[in-house]
Design a protein around this nucleic acid. Structure first.
Lengths: 244, 244
DNA sequence: CCCACTTAATTGTACATACATAATTACATA
DNA sequence: TATGTAATTATGTATGTACAATTAAGTGGG
């Protein structure tokens, strides 16, 4: 791995340092409780100020990947099983893990003007069109989720993609965008006319609504995804552990 | 409220500032999207350096209580009730962290024979009674969640507890059971007659159903909890990061 | 009215510096 | 040995400073 910081780069130093540290603590020699070099030394080695280094460390401390200990140093935290560090899965993979073969029932691509919310998320103006991908998906028996995805123009999707292979795999291999962080909001709704028709359920049935915000390595917004799940076919599970 | 920072105090300035900001943004004049004074001005007013102020603001930004916007300023985020920054918090603490005062609207204790599912979870026989705690809870305005909890007999609850203090605090201090692991299943439902009446909503309204299995340090089952949340008042959020 | 351009306000980045504080270790002393 | 004390060493706190980047809002021309 590289332990080089590029002072000419457009990406801020503290971000570079942060990424470097993320990589560093994943190395076998830095597992579980190992101490990082002390701040002064590390700052010197990376040729950044201690302030900048601390800014990076702080972020990882906040994410509980690192733990500070006075007089001792900063050490790598015990990995936790929790939603925070949960392995990130694409829908296809997520379903595969549940033993479900995914089938696309409908697929529709269009270019639309984003509404305020979407524009705000992508941090673009509402008069710049974005690609909208609608997919009705499910197992081999029946559709059970209706997805609406919007993609940041930066990614450069044309609409000619066939979406045969998993989306993130395609984005990664052909567009060099690696989905790294996702934030989700799960809430409950009832089916309106449109959704009821898509999912072939009664009007007013329970729907699990899952809104996902997907970011790339640099934590830039990538995808804005809405998922309407048939209630009976999808239960969201979370495991969290207290760490004293 | 006091807008005073005590430079003599033993508690660090950035903590004082952080607390002050937390209070500040809870004031009616600082709701939803209102801008804070800009950093230079605020730093001057509080008589701390901009660096120190930023340290405090950063923490709240990380907790998503504040949102920075270049050229515009820093504004108060849309309040989201969620389980996000809670690593492990009881409902009371979770709500407190968001500046919501929890109120119990109803509280009912009974001893019942567990059904098959509950008995299986607790690993006891169905002819051994367990304590059932029903609570209708919410903020000071209205109830928004109906909880049904079952407790393992091992814990030794009598039913004479007053449930004035947070449940897990009580279990920890008086019964020496420390809730350590929770597994949750989140799904969507519509309100049946009973729930609609409890939460004062229409029959068939969307309900977020949250089933929690709580374990102690030794990963022994402790609590079996069902929560019926008014859809509008509760959004479940999850953040996950890919670790390759 | 709409577009391109300017400007100014605000956050963002980065550094150097100084002293405080906590905890371990080493050492002196009873 | 046990105990108190000082030195050491890491993080913690705090400030001042400087300039960069972003972008909302204002400006003027077509």
């Amino acid at each position: 791995m590289k332990i080089e910081i590029d002072h000419q780069s457009a990406v801020p130093l503290h971000i570079q340092v942060e990424n470097l540290l993320r990589e560093l603590i994943r190395q076998p020699e830095y597992q579980a409780g190992k101490l990082l070099p002390n701040e002064l030394e590390l700052a010197k080695k990376l040729a950044v100020s201690r302030t900048t280094l601390r800014q990076a460390i702080n972020k990882l401390v906040y994410e509980e990947l690192l733990v500070r200990k006075k007089r001792l140093g900063t050490k790598v935290a015990q990995p936790k099983m929790s939603s925070k560090s949960m392995n990130w899965l694409s829908f296809t993979q997520e379903m595969l893990a549940r033993g479900i073969t995914v089938k696309n029932y409908e697929l529709h691509i269009s270019w639309v003007y984003p509404d305020e919310q979407i524009a705000a998320f992508f941090d673009i103006r509402t008069d710049k069109k974005v690609m909208k991908l609608e997919r009705l998906r499910g197992n081999t028996q029946e559709p059970f989720v209706y997805f609406i995805s919007y993609f940041h123009p930066r990614i450069g999707l044309t609409g000619d993609e066939d979406f045969k292979k998993p989306l993130y795999e395609m984005l990664e291999q052909e567009h060099y965008f690696v989905a790294t962080l996702s934030k989700e909001e799960i809430s409950s709704r009832t089916a309106d006319k449109m959704i009821a028709a898509k999912l072939e359920i009664d009007l007013g049935s329970a729907i699990l609504f899952r809104k996902r915000f997907v970011y790339d390595q640099a934590e830039r917004p990538m995808e804005y995804n809405l998922g309407y799940y048939k209630a009976e076919s999808f239960i969201y599970t979370v495991e969290s552990r207290r760490t004293p």
